[in-house]
């Protein structure tokens, strides 16, 4: 399978954080995990204040979400990840696969899926991208960088409502 060797993949087990996350991931198989990790690297926002090193958190969040999907969707997701992995060979004939690509190359490749004429390919990438963006942009460190603090606002609005209800009760003791 020498023709499929592109950029060497990083050794997952060498990095203790990755090893820990891989152990913690209970719903994705090792193959799915590595494909998804490559997809996250290609899809995740970069620049403009979005360089937080949270890919593993994103992966863990997606892993927690998988069991909530209906069985047919889980099967489709499993299958879709493999199509995504072997897509370069299948659709473009390039002797590589997603997990062997560098970040920029993966981004260009995935962007091609987004512009694909096939609705199925677009839909698959839309699904993966939604999962990645949901986990990425809702990460506390990203929200902090965006100066969005919904959590603090929750405390403020609960207190404000309690005060308002108190005032109304005192104004109308019935």
């Amino acid at each position: 399978m020498a023709v499929l060797q592109g950029i060497p993949q990083q050794n997952d087990t060498a990095n203790p954080v990755r090893r820990f996350v891989a152990q913690a991931l209970r719903n994705l198989s090792p193959t799915s995990t590595s494909i998804l990790r490559a997809a996250i690297a290609g899809l995740r926002p970069r620049g403009h204040g979005f360089d937080q090193p949270i890919d593993e958190d994103v992966l863990a969040e997606i892993d927690r979400t998988i069991p909530c999907f209906p069985p047919l969707f889980r099967l489709g997701f499993w299958l879709g990840l493999r199509v995504l992995e072997w897509g370069p060979l299948v659709f473009t004939g390039r002797p590589t696969r997603l997990t062997r690509m560098g970040c920029d190359q993966a981004t260009r490749y995935l962007d091609g899926w987004l512009r694909s004429r096939s609705a199925l390919r677009r839909m698959l990438l839309f699904g993966v991208r939604t999962l990645v963006y949901l986990a990425f942009y809702q990460h506390p460190s990203v929200l902090h960088a965006m100066e969005v603090d919904w959590d603090r606002r929750m405390g403020e609005t609960i207190r404000l409502r309690a005060d308002t209800l108190d005032r109304e009760t005192h104004a109308d003791p019935r």
Partner: peptide, 10 residues
Amino acid sequence: PIQANAELMS
């Protein structure tokens, strides 16, 4: 495109 998402979201 994917590359433009970060700029938009900023």
